[in-house]
Design a protein around this nucleic acid. Structure first.
Length: 105
DNA sequence: GTGCTGACACAGG
DNA sequence: ACCTGTGCCAGCA
């Protein structure tokens, strides 16, 4: 069961994976692209989230260096504090301790 | 087809 | 921590 069946196959899978990330855990754009292994790249994952990320916990998807999506740091930080996500920096630049929070789907 | 842009990743400085 | 350049792939004018 995917989150949005009307979208492309790739987009549906991306949203599905993100939706499966448990609270307090995160995955990088590259991790997701690699996990799906559909020949797409991290940028395509980013595009999907930028367009349809509103339906999934997008704040659990961050850059490989632990920084959250551009322009959404504030909202992301609120969620991190609520979920108890391991942080290396709770103040801008907000950085998740990806080493400890990384989730392997 | 050509060129620019983007919620990326990685190496350098 | 910041910025720049390069590689990557898809969407759009």
């Amino acid at each position: 069961m995917s989150v949005d069946a009307s979208l492309g196959e790739f987009a549906s899978r991306v949203l599905d994976v993100v939706d499966a990330i448990p609270p307090g855990r995160v995955m990088s754009y590259g991790d997701i692209a690699q996990h799906l292994a559909e020949g797409k790249g991290p940028r395509q994952v980013g595009r999907v989230l930028a367009l349809y990320g509103g339906a999934v916990p997008w704040w659990r998807v961050i850059h490989s260096d632990g920084t959250p999506a551009p322009g959404h740091e504030e909202a992301a930080l609120t969620h991190y504090l609520t979920e108890g996500t391991p942080l290396r920096s709770a103040r801008p630049p907000v950085r998740v301790d990806i080493r400890a929070a990384r989730w392997h789907a």
